[in-house]
Amino acid sequence: MSVRNLRIEFPTRRGTLVAVDDISFDISPGEILGVVGESGAGKSLTGAAIIGLLEPPGRIAQGEILLEGRRIDNLPYEQLRRIRGRQIGAIFQDPLTSLNPLYSISRQLVETIQTHLPLNDREARTRALALLDEVGIPSAGERIDHYPHQFSGGMRQRVVIALALCAEPRLIIADEPTTALDVSIQAQIISLLKGLCHEHGTAVMLVTHDMGVIAEAADRVAVMYSGRIAEIGPVQEVIRTAKHPYTHGLMGSIPLIGHHVKKLTQIDGAMPRLQEIPAGCPFNPRCEKVMDCCRVERPNLQTVQKSRVACHLFDGADGEARAGE
């Protein structure tokens, strides 16, 4: 799955807001790409755009989305809908709203399976049972006929994962799948998701604001800021040796157990609103290492070690030396 130069705009009566501005990334089969950023960074919109669930008036203004080499962002609605269920699965933050409260779990699963796979009722039910088993629902045979409200939050999220896996999709978009859950349940869901994807070779785009979840689950991570990718690279590298000053500040602002600090590193200010994104690098008003060119020229992603970073600090050959400080 690849995203090329994606740009999402919101036309409003006070002018057009650019929520996502020229981002590109790939996810290979079996890989989990974490997309992390603060609220309003455009990470959920990117996910929604890929599934084709962008809410109007939001629209893709530019760029393309390719799934296994085939362009899907310009498909007519009907075709897109088929692909959405068959090849792209979705997991959202609130499991309660993704399940229909009026139907039993079995009915929802069987229906979804039969929409995408040519199975009869019995076969579909068998498959549903196997799926529930796979996502770790205890005594699935008994619980399959229960209704969503009879499940706890963690179990519901497991059911949603089972639903997303129904048609053996090539790609799963998971938007804050653990945010509504307690820490102990979070850990369960993450390891489940991770295991399943590696097993089935499914590509996953994991959208979250929680660095902990990323560290735990993702293979690579893209850090978004003001609708742009600030840094993208292998998760270890980004977390341990963050290159972009924003990522660096972000990592420092997370309190860690076992590290007593008097004060957390803090990035002053807040992410600019969409209508107030400054020229040049969007992070320049808050950046400690700001240079003159940052206020004028927008930095492009460039390769530094195994990562790609959008920061003028890495312009030219001595970039790494300057960032080393």
Binding site: Q186, A187, Q188, G212, A215, I254
Partner: peptide
């Protein structure tokens, strides 16, 4: 259950 941010490779036991 706390996610391991330091990537120390500590194996977590999901509860």
């Amino acid at each position: 259950a706390i996610p391991d941010l330091e990537m120390s490779g500590r194996q977590r036991i999901p509860v």
